Amino acid sequence: MADAVIVVSLLLVAVTATAAVANRDPARQALVLSVLGLVLAVLFTVLQAPDVGLSQLAVGSALTPLLIMLSVRRVKRRGQPKDGGR
């Protein structure tokens, strides 16, 4: 039973990692990266490393996608004219 849970977790990691790489839009990529962080946290917990899973949950699922979204927003804002296009 435990082996089946590990195999399913590994398959979910492979699918979400492939989806993160296949996305071209940075905003969607950040969202998929957040899901990948969550799936990795589950995998680490299944592999009996809950401390690593909690770290992955904090950094991989929350902090990194947030920083990517803020960077994308800043780059998009920098590309707009300051006078509103007039």
Rank of each mutant, 00 (worst) to 15 (best):
M1P: 14
M1Q: 06
A2Q: 05
A2G: 14
A2P: 01
D3Q: 13
D3F: 15
A4H: 11
V5T: 10
V5R: 03
V5P: 01
I6A: 11
I6K: 12
V7T: 08
V8T: 10
V8Q: 04
S9P: 11
L10M: 12
L10T: 00
L11C: 11
L11K: 02
L12D: 01
T16A: 14
A17D: 04
A17W: 12
A17E: 11
T18F: 15
A19T: 02
A19H: 02
A19W: 04
A20N: 01
A20D: 06
A20G: 15
A20V: 09
A20Q: 04
V21R: 09
V21G: 07
V21D: 08
A22H: 10
A22S: 08
D25V: 13
D25K: 07
P26Y: 04
A27Y: 00
A27L: 08
A27N: 02
R28S: 07
R28L: 13
Q29H: 07
Q29L: 09
A30M: 01
L31M: 14
V32D: 00
L33T: 13
V35C: 08
L36K: 01
G37E: 02
V39S: 05
L40H: 04
A41R: 00
A41M: 13
V42A: 13
V42L: 03
V42N: 12
L43K: 08
F44P: 06
F44C: 13
V46S: 04
Q48R: 07
Q48I: 04
A49P: 12
A49F: 10
A49I: 02
D51G: 06
D51E: 05
D51I: 03
G53F: 01
L57I: 02
L57V: 10
L57H: 04
V59C: 03
V59D: 07
V59K: 00
G60K: 01
G60L: 15
S61Y: 03
A62P: 07
A62M: 14
A62V: 15
A62N: 11
A62R: 12
L63A: 15
L63V: 13
T64K: 05
L66G: 15
L66F: 11
L67I: 07
L67R: 02
L70M: 12
L70N: 02
S71D: 02
S71P: 04
V72P: 00
V72D: 00
R73P: 01
R73A: 09
R74Y: 10
R74S: 13
R74K: 05
R74F: 06
V75K: 05
V75N: 06
R78N: 05
G79K: 09
G79V: 05
G79W: 14
Q80L: 10
P81K: 09
P81C: 03
D83M: 08
G84T: 15
G84W: 15
G84P: 11
G85P: 08
R86K: 09
R86I: 02
R86V: 06
